[in-house]
């Protein structure tokens, strides 16, 4: 399989150069663009496996771009955004972005996120796995069985649905809204604190140290991420 192609849309030349270099050093082929318009053309032309998108582009609304893109493409989208712009991040994630990085970011972190996104992408086309293992925990979807260190763990129906919703998208940032909808359905009337309580239950049952979780990570102000 040839090197994966990554499309980078970012208007700051210096940041573009930096990201390009880091990605190319890691063996990716990079197509770059300074505007959304050109980016859209390259999306069709170069068929990239991943999109890295800066949200503050001068020629349009990055969030609307993601929403439009989602109607045709399934490639993972990694968003670059400034800190203290949580609202923007949530809107981007709800529009279909998969992950975000806050500027300034470490290149090591960027590469790790890129690898994580590329890893989960092919899984979507194949038959979804029915068996998960993280730490001491094993989840068997077919038998609806969860064990920790070999001992069965009892999960309530909501806890189990929440676990499934998180396992379905490992590495992806899941907003409160997304998870509420996944667990309680479209007509959910529960508030975010319901979700927080159940995540805390999951951590207590499945994490070694619930205060410093390894798998069910908090994205403060945005949602959660299940990290294998």
């Amino acid at each position: 399989m040839s090197d994966p192609t990554i499309l980078l849309i970012e208007d700051e030349v210096q940041i573009r150069r930096l990201v390009c270099k880091a990605l190319e050093t890691d063996g990716y082929r990079v197509v770059e663009s300074g505007t959304l318009g050109k980016g859209l053309l390259q999306l069709h032309g170069a068929a990239p496996q991943l999109l890295i998108l800066d949200l503050g582009l001068p020629d349009g609304d990055g969030i609307a771009f993601i929403r439009e893109l989602r109607s045709q493409f399934t490639l993972p989208v990694l968003v670059l955004s400034a800190r203290s712009a949580e609202g923007e991040k949530i809107r981007a994630l709800d529009a279909g972005a998969d992950d975000y990085l806050t500027k300034p970011f470490a290149t090591g972190e960027l590469l790790a996120r890129v690898r994580a996104q590329l890893r989960r992408n092919p899984a979507e086309s194949a038959t979804p796995p029915t068996h998960f293992r993280f730490g001491e925990v094993e989840v068997d979807l077919a038998q609806r069985r969860v064990t920790r260190g070999g001992a069965a763990v009892h999960l309530t129906p909501i806890e189990y649905r929440l676990l499934l919703a998180m396992l379905a998208d490992p590495g992806k940032v899941l907003t409160y809204r997304h998870l509420l909808r996944a667990v309680w359905g479209n007509a959910h009337s529960e508030s975010n604190h319901y979700l927080r309580i159940y995540v805390s239950h999951l951590r207590q049952k499945l994490e070694a140290d619930p205060t410093q979780p390894e798998y069910f990570l908090t994205e403060t102000g945005i949602g959660y991420r299940f990290q294998i």
């Binding site: 700051e12 930096l18 990201v19 290149t107």
Partner: peptide
């Protein structure tokens, strides 16, 4: 933040 990001990335590289 933009020049900071660049500076940070460059020193990392």
């Amino acid at each position: 933040r933009t020049p900071l990001t660049v500076l940070y990335g460059m020193s990392e590289a």
